[in-house]
Design a protein around this nucleic acid. Structure first.
Lengths: 252, 252
DNA sequence: CGGTTACTTGATCGAGCTCAATTAGTGTGG
DNA sequence: CCACACTAATTGAGCTCGATCAAGTAACCG
């Protein structure tokens, strides 16, 4: 294996996964050095995207999966009658664009919430590469499988959980993901509006607002606009299993 | 009683995708004859499964995707505290098991509703085959992509739609899928209980029952236990506003 | 048969939605 | 720097959809 030393050139098309700070979180996780080298050859960095810009829209021809390097994306599905469903938020190291696999067109939209930088992974190149790079094929299937499992968990959340449980689950999920990225698990800024949160969780924004107030009354957290401080992750987690458990735990 | 899809013929010992009646609906759709020939070599037919039997359970090591030849499966996700979420129903020509891709273990359960026959497609063999059979790789990605898109549509249904819209959408989806399989689009037996329908749609079973009664009053359909006759697909479709156009089960 | 399970129907209640008013940030221009 | 507009978020009041509780009926099965 010929490993070239590769200082970041001015040509921003070329990028390096090897020294990307996201290595452990992103697609390359688990690949060998030589596999990584192959992958780097096909990854294309896109110019930075500003809030409000779309990475892709439903109906666009799809040629790539995207990995987020920095920033935050929002995926949402739209219907003819203008209804929207927020499908998820994508943090650095996470990927979007899987719904474009089915017929070469995206079925959802991806919009930038915070200035973002993404890497494009062209399907065609990725597929070719899979033929010679078994580790990559496996890894892609893993990522796709995780995507499906996450959607399933979301179906449970929307189908069976109360408003309170939904918001608590959401906050804990964010907390864990921030932590995995070396950020604080207990103090962070929400990258999305109340509108987005409510839509995502199947709740009215007034309900989201009231639940934040409610959690705050109970000293579970402090919230001010988009700034959130979680005071008691354990108790917040307890909320996910509902009231039943807290019956045995004395409220002092 | 229950209308079976088709009586099993005696010469089905050897798996052949080429002459499988599901060809157009199932994974092989779009493959060349030689690609099909390759695929047939790795497909393993499992012995018939009886209602109540599990194809796999959450936590089981996963080695295969499964294609349903006949019968109906139910996928459901379970939580530690015993909560269940029905994730979907799998008809002949459709596939399950994608959630096992993420880490080699299924995260959901698959149980048989009506006596079923399935084909197993071992990941390992499938992956190897992808390296030499580009059409197969593309086709698998298409199926996976469709799975994700369907999950997204389900998130919209649970997040934004009323009880009535949910049941109407469900019935129309079933109708289209039956039709695509050469069965009647307007007269069929529900393969699943009210319990399952309610759980799937995020509704109480009493609500499902009342909605059936309500639709019946309006001459939209006739229902008796599991027997359903749809009298006016157009009007039923009208009940779900802009949502429907994308819910069809068309193969891509 | 009697017992069990699946489904239906009725009555009531409450979680969360809707509508509406208020407050707090965030520009923008004079 | 402040006035004004505009949007995001909060808070309040009332109502509705669908859940829950409860009872009744119908199919199925030993």
């Amino acid at each position: 294996m010929t490993r070239r030393t590769r200082p970041p050139t001015t040509d921003e098309i070329k990028i390096s996964c090897s020294n990307c700070s996201l290595g452990e979180l992103c697609l390359p996780h688990g690949l060998t050095d030589s596999e990584l080298e192959q992958l780097e050859k096909i990854v294309k960095r896109k110019p930075p995207l500003q809030p409000g810009q779309h990475l892709y829209r439903a109906g666009d021809a799809s040629f790539s999966l995207y990995a987020v390097r920095s920033g935050t994306l929002k995926s949402y599905y739209t219907t003819d009658d203008g209804d929207e469903q927020v499908l998820g938020f994508t943090l650095p190291g996470e990927m979007v664009g899987f719904d474009g696999l089915s017929d070469g067109h995206y079925t959802s939209n991806s919009v930038v919430l915070e200035t973002s930088c993404v890497c494009a992974l062209p399907y065609e190149r990725l597929e070719e590469l899979c033929h010679t790079t078994p580790g990559l094929h496996k890894q892609i299937m893993r990522v796709v499988g995780r995507e499906i499992t996450l959607d399933h968990q979301m179906l449970l959340l929307l189908g069976k959980r109360s408003a309170e449980e939904r918001l608590a689950t959401f906050l804990i999920s964010l907390s864990k993901r921030f932590k995995a990225r070396g950020l604080s698990a207990t103090e962070f800024n929400l990258p999305m509006s109340r509108q987005d949160i409510g839509n995502y969780l199947g709740l009215a924004i007034e309900t989201v607002s009231r639940l934040f107030a409610h959690f705050q009354e109970q000293k579970l957290l402090t919230v001010n606009r988009r700034r959130v401080i979680l005071h008691d992750l354990n108790r917040l987690t307890g909320r996910i299993e509902g009231y039943l458990n807290s019956v045995s735990a004395r409220p002092s």
